[in-house]
Simulated scan of single mutants.
Amino acid sequence: MKKILLFSLVMAALPAIAQNNNPVFPGWYADPEGIIFDNAYWIYPTFSAPYEEQVFLDAFSSPDLVNWTKHPKVLDTSAVKWAHKAMWAPSIIEKDDKYYLFFGANDIQGDEEEGGIGVAVSDNPGGPFKDHLGKPLIDKFHNGAQPIDQFAFKDKDGQYYLFYGGWKHCNVAKLNDDFTGFIPFEDGSTFKEITPDSYVEGPFMFIRDGKYYFMWSEGGWTGPDYSVAYAIADSPMGPFKRVDKILQQDMDIARGAGHHSVIHEKDSDNYYMVYHRRPIDTDARDSRETCIDRMYFDKNGHIQPVIMTREGVKSNPLTIKNQD
């Protein structure tokens, strides 16, 4: 008994071990999309490297937001014959027990080049994924938007949309039932521009209390001004009036914070921002790491500024089906 008591006293006197969960997994990764499938959290990021080395996509899964398992090369260019570099910013969605992974490839600079936005499919969120079409889903510049940075979104009525666009233009299009193409809008157009003020790239959307929160990245992705802003609308089509910037560099923590996504634990008010940032001690272009911090709302439903931390978030195991 004395030994147990002495051990307890010694442990109580020791300083608490600091939580250090950011970055959430090792390696240089950017543009992370976080999502919940059944009882696991998933993150699908860009492998941050020179474009010619970006020929695959890894995924990571976790039961609790703290302990992550790497799923290497869930998709690579051996499965996508038209893609040969710059596989970027994956976005994934589940439909009819299949998982559809949208991705950008080749960093095309004009309509005459091969590449754009593709889609791959798998029976498992951990892959392997195979090319769904054998060609890009979008391979042209519509409304000035470079075909990159795609985000797949399911609306309340079951309609699926694809938001996308670089070069300071953002489009939305209605996906058809099997994700092989698009359904024209009532006016006959396929790609509608919805670009909000200061938009650069990286669109993301979620619904909270019946409102559509549209989010994007601003500034230059290699610069200190990279950041995240948002708008609120009554429709997935907008109009989107910029509300505020909610994520930006903190010179005590990191620079270049942006290109994010949001994980929401169903039936709770737990919202997590998943994003990349550049460590203070490096200027290397591709030195970007994936992090998670909490996201909160004020009483009016506005998003409060997200505070970047080294501690990250606490363990939050999923115990029920949480797909949102």
Results as ranks from 00 to 15, higher is better:
5 L>E: 14
7 F>V: 12
11 M>A: 15
19 Q>A: 11
22 N>F: 14
34 G>L: 02
43 I>H: 00
46 T>F: 09
51 Y>K: 11
57 L>Y: 09
57 L>N: 10
66 V>N: 03
67 N>A: 01
72 P>T: 03
72 P>R: 12
73 K>E: 15
80 V>G: 00
91 S>M: 11
92 I>R: 05
99 Y>L: 08
106 N>L: 13
106 N>R: 12
108 I>K: 05
115 G>F: 11
118 G>A: 08
126 G>Q: 14
127 G>Q: 10
132 H>C: 06
132 H>T: 07
134 G>M: 08
141 F>K: 00
141 F>A: 00
151 F>H: 01
156 K>E: 12
159 Q>S: 10
160 Y>F: 13
163 F>T: 05
165 G>H: 04
175 L>V: 09
177 D>N: 14
179 F>L: 07
180 T>R: 04
180 T>C: 03
180 T>E: 09
183 I>P: 06
185 F>N: 10
185 F>K: 05
187 D>H: 01
189 S>I: 09
189 S>T: 15
200 V>E: 04
202 G>N: 06
202 G>A: 14
206 F>G: 00
206 F>R: 03
217 S>Q: 09
222 T>K: 07
226 Y>S: 05
228 V>P: 00
229 A>M: 11
230 Y>F: 03
230 Y>C: 12
243 V>K: 08
246 I>A: 00
248 Q>H: 12
256 G>W: 08
269 D>P: 04
276 H>V: 08
284 A>P: 04
289 E>A: 00
294 R>T: 12
296 Y>R: 10
300 N>F: 02
304 Q>V: 08
306 V>W: 00
307 I>K: 14
313 V>E: 01
313 V>A: 01
321 K>D: 15
